[in-house]
Structure formats: C-alpha cells, structure tokens
Simulated assay, not measured.
Amino acid sequence: MEAFLLSTGIVALAEIGDKTQLLALLLAARFKKPLPIIAGIFVATVLNHFAAAWLGQIASAYITDNLLRWVLGISFIAMALWMLIPDKLDDDMPLLDRVGVFGATVIAFFMAEMGDKTQIATVALSARFDALPAVVMGTTLGMMIANVPAVLLGEVAARKLPVATVHRIAACIFAVLGVVTLVGF
C-alpha cells in the first residue's frame, strides 16, 4: 500500500506544470473532446509507466543493495532539483491530427513521457519498492489526478494553480526520499 500511495502522491505533484500536463491542455484546446483525450492519457501512461517500472525491477535485480541505495538516493535528490526547473512544451503535432483524438493523445503522451520526470520517478519507485503493480497503478493514478482536471478545465485551471509552490513541495518530497534512502531508514 505504501508503494501505491507514495507513487500516486509523488507523480500527481510532479505532474503539475509538467510538459505532459501542458500537452493535456493543448490537446483539450485543439480537439475539444475530453473523453478520448482522457482515455488516451490513461493508455499511454499505463504502457509507459509499466515499461519504466519493469526497467526499475530489472535494475534492482542486478545491482547490489548498497549500490542501489546510493543510486536511488541520488536519483531522488536529482529529481528534487529537476522539479525546480519549469517545463514547457515546444513541439506542435501536425502529423498526429491524422490518427484521431485518441490516437494523437496516446502517441503524444507516450512520447512526451519518454525520459520525463514522472517516468524516471517510476523507474526509481519500482526499484525502491519491488512492487511493480502497485507502482504502475499509483503512478498512473497520479498522472490521471493531475491531467484529467487539465483536460476538463483547460487553461483556467492552469492559470489558477500555484505551479511554483507545487513544484517546491514535490521537490521537498523527492529530497526527503533521497536523504531517507541514503541514510537507510
């Protein structure tokens, strides 16, 4: 249960103001069809985060406990620092218009998550907890918690959320996880 709850909370916070949340806003504004966008976000997140969690499980099997502790601790602290750097979405998606709203969302979200904070957090959380299903369900729920309102409320919600404050809170959580992991609690 700890892996699920922590994964949900960390990803929900990390996703506020993230490029994929900006992508959700862009897709909502462009297509104005929230249900296929939400379904596409869900499918892309499950696929991407399952692969990331699986990679975390494999990595943890081949790395000694002491080395894993250091790698995870430093990764969490690096994530804390990364959270303090604002995200922006640079790419337009003209070719994705041909695959429909659902297809565009799945492709765009899957690609946007590659190497993203939440994907890397999923790898680290999976390696830390050795609970692939709980981590995937938690990170997916965290993505949905952050992105569904963005799709439904659009730009109004993005302007009202204190993104910098949310990023600082998430950075503190990652920093605490890093220190706790390094100390070995």
Results as ranks from 00 to 15, higher is better:
residue 159 R to K: 11
residue 132 L to E: 13
residue 37 I to F: 01
residue 105 T to G: 00
residue 182 L to T: 09
residue 11 V to W: 02
residue 45 T to Q: 04
residue 109 F to H: 05
residue 148 V to K: 03
residue 59 A to D: 07
residue 81 L to A: 15
residue 12 A to S: 05
residue 167 H to L: 04
residue 7 S to E: 10
residue 164 A to M: 08
residue 76 F to V: 14
residue 62 Y to S: 11
residue 37 I to K: 01
residue 93 M to I: 11
residue 83 M to I: 01
residue 157 A to D: 06
residue 94 P to V: 05
residue 136 V to G: 04
residue 132 L to G: 11
residue 7 S to Q: 12
residue 126 S to R: 03
residue 34 P to Y: 00
residue 135 V to E: 08
residue 96 L to F: 07
residue 100 G to E: 06
residue 112 A to L: 14
residue 2 E to C: 11
residue 117 K to E: 12
residue 14 A to G: 06
residue 135 V to C: 09
residue 148 V to R: 01
residue 161 L to K: 05
residue 121 A to W: 04
residue 162 P to G: 10
residue 96 L to E: 02
residue 113 E to N: 12
residue 22 L to F: 07
residue 150 A to F: 01
residue 38 I to Q: 05
residue 86 P to V: 00
residue 164 A to L: 07
residue 118 T to P: 13
residue 153 L to G: 05
residue 178 G to Y: 12
residue 80 A to L: 13
residue 172 C to L: 12
residue 78 A to G: 12
residue 78 A to N: 06
residue 103 G to K: 06
residue 172 C to K: 03
residue 96 L to H: 02
residue 105 T to M: 00
residue 28 A to T: 08
residue 173 I to H: 08
residue 88 K to P: 00
residue 168 R to S: 03
residue 161 L to W: 11
residue 87 D to L: 03
residue 165 T to G: 15
residue 41 I to F: 04
residue 162 P to L: 09
residue 60 S to Y: 10
residue 117 K to N: 14
residue 174 F to P: 14
residue 7 S to Y: 14
residue 50 F to Q: 03
residue 14 A to E: 07
residue 71 V to Y: 11
residue 169 I to V: 13
residue 151 V to F: 02
residue 42 F to H: 03
residue 32 K to S: 10
residue 103 G to A: 07
residue 146 A to S: 00
residue 59 A to N: 07
residue 53 A to F: 08
residue 46 V to C: 08
residue 91 D to W: 13
residue 15 E to L: 00
residue 117 K to M: 13
residue 73 G to A: 06
residue 185 F to M: 10
residue 53 A to N: 12
residue 184 G to W: 14
residue 115 G to A: 15
residue 42 F to K: 05
residue 166 V to W: 10
residue 151 V to M: 01
residue 47 L to A: 14
residue 118 T to F: 10
residue 148 V to I: 10
residue 129 F to W: 14
residue 88 K to Q: 02
residue 145 I to F: 03
residue 184 G to L: 14
residue 122 T to V: 09
residue 87 D to M: 04
residue 185 F to C: 08
residue 146 A to Y: 00
residue 31 F to C: 00
residue 47 L to G: 14
residue 71 V to K: 05
residue 45 T to G: 07
residue 85 I to G: 08
residue 130 D to Q: 15
residue 135 V to L: 06
residue 68 L to E: 02
residue 14 A to Y: 02
residue 175 A to L: 15
residue 171 A to N: 07
residue 60 S to K: 11
residue 19 K to F: 04
residue 130 D to S: 15
residue 30 R to Y: 10
residue 92 D to K: 08
residue 117 K to D: 13
residue 164 A to S: 08
residue 17 G to H: 00
residue 172 C to P: 01
residue 68 L to W: 04
residue 81 L to C: 12
residue 16 I to E: 00
residue 67 L to V: 08
residue 21 Q to F: 01
residue 78 A to Q: 06
residue 158 A to C: 01
residue 155 E to C: 01
residue 110 F to P: 10
residue 148 V to P: 06
residue 170 A to P: 09
residue 72 L to G: 06
residue 157 A to R: 09
residue 112 A to I: 15
residue 123 V to R: 03
residue 32 K to V: 15
residue 81 L to F: 14
residue 77 I to H: 09
residue 141 L to S: 05
residue 66 N to D: 12
residue 105 T to E: 01
residue 158 A to P: 01
residue 112 A to V: 12
residue 38 I to V: 11
residue 55 L to E: 09
residue 165 T to L: 15
residue 57 Q to D: 09
residue 171 A to K: 02
residue 24 A to N: 00
residue 5 L to S: 10
